[in-house]
């Protein structure tokens, strides 16, 4: 125990000290190699220019290097694997992608992913917007927002464990402890095995992500709503617009950019959805999504690096354009303010 703490302490010391040493040392070396107080003015100016050109790369260098090793290299390796057989030795061309195209499980996963994409971002953004508007004028609005925001602090696995109790089903003759079944039986219905109902069970899993992400949407959109100039709303009131017209014609267009950023941020998250499905159903009862399918082929029973890698590439290609658009939009938003 003590040894571990000491190790941690020295690691931190070494890491921070190393960083400091690197930046200080490389900067010092640069200053020495191209001195600004050179003999004549012309070479001093030239040296300063060279310094300014080199310094950013010196400081960015370590970060770029780490990024390459841990991000760029794996991508290249995954692309490489996706064109090779299950052990990664023999080149098989597009065979893995062709397999995926005709595979029922892959098609089901794509279909489920599209379902998630259609439902979760829209529902989170819509509910976030409604909650943000409703809580804006209430004195206890901030408390409500904090409560709605809280699930964001819970890990997906943790949230899934909580929701497992919500959907819990006990066999006949036993007391139902899941709240959903409790409600159903209270109204005279029959208890259901919710997470094993094909097709509908997807939506029960989505509810978990909506529960987690609505808080995020609420907080971001509430801030955007606060940024709308009050007098444009007053002018609209005088212009004779009703509350719905003010909401849709005056408020929403003014925070349109923020709505899109929230929407696409959640979309990217949904494309990568994995933990909830793994924890809740482990891809059973037709709930598999791409990330889980990849995991199964790569590391579990499948044991096929080629197929797993091909699925990973499909996910990446799907996420990339949304990601790029999202970053651009967020930058444009920041410039606007």
């Amino acid at each position: 125990m003590t040894a571990q703490i000491l190790y941690a302490f020295f690691t931190v010391l070494l890491g921070v000290g190393g960083c400091f040493g690197y930046f200080y040392g490389s900067n010092w070396l640069l200053d020495r190699t191209f001195p600004a107080n050179a003999n004549n003015d012309a070479s001093a100016v030239r040296n300063l220019r060279i310094q300014a050109n080199i310094r950013p790369w010196l400081f960015l260098g370590p970060a770029l290097l780490l990024l390459s090793v841990y991000l760029i290299f794996p991508v290249i390796q995954t692309v490489y694997l996706s064109f090779h057989d299950r052990a990664g030795d023999k080149y098989v061309g597009l065979a893995n992608y062709k397999w995926a195209f005709y595979d029922d499980q892959f098609r089901l996963s794509i279909f489920n992913n599209i379902l998630w994409l259609a439902v979760v971002p829209a529902l989170c953004t819509l509910m976030g917007l409604i909650i943000a508007v409703l809580t804006d004028r209430l004195w206890w609005g901030n408390l409500a927002k904090s409560l709605i925001f809280m699930p964001l602090a819970i890990s997906f696995v943790g949230a899934s464990v909580i929701w497992k109790f919500v959907y819990d089903y006990r066999g006949e003759g036993q007391q139902q402890i899941g709240i959903l079944n409790a409600i159903v039986t209270y109204f005279g219905g029959d208890p259901q095995v919710w997470i094993a109902l094909p097709f509908w069970n997807n939506f029960f899993l989505m509810a978990i992500l909506v529960w987690i992400q609505t808080g995020f949407a609420t907080v971001i959109l509430a801030a955007a709503l606060r940024g709308i100039p009050e007098d444009t709303l007053e002018a609209a009131t005088i212009d004779g617009a009703g509350p719905f017209k003010i909401f849709f014609r005056i408020m929403v267009p003014q925070i349109y950019g923020t709505i899109l950023v929230v929407w696409t941020t959640i979309t990217v998250l949904v494309l990568k959805i994995f933990d909830i499905v793994l924890t809740m159903t482990n891809s059973q009862w037709d709930t598999s999504v791409l990330a889980n399918l990849m995991f199964d082929w790569m590391f579990r029973g499948g044991g096929d690096f080629g197929r797993g890698a091909a699925i990973a590439i499909v996910i990446m290609v799907a996420v990339l354009p949304i990601m790029i658009w999202n970053i651009r939009q967020a930058n444009a938003e920041q410039k606007g303010h």
Partner: peptide, 21 residues
Amino acid sequence: VPPSKRGIAMVFQSYALYPHM
């Protein structure tokens, strides 16, 4: 009587133009 029914028009200090229109 609500503002829109008072037969008044208002010009605001900040102009209060609708920026997206």
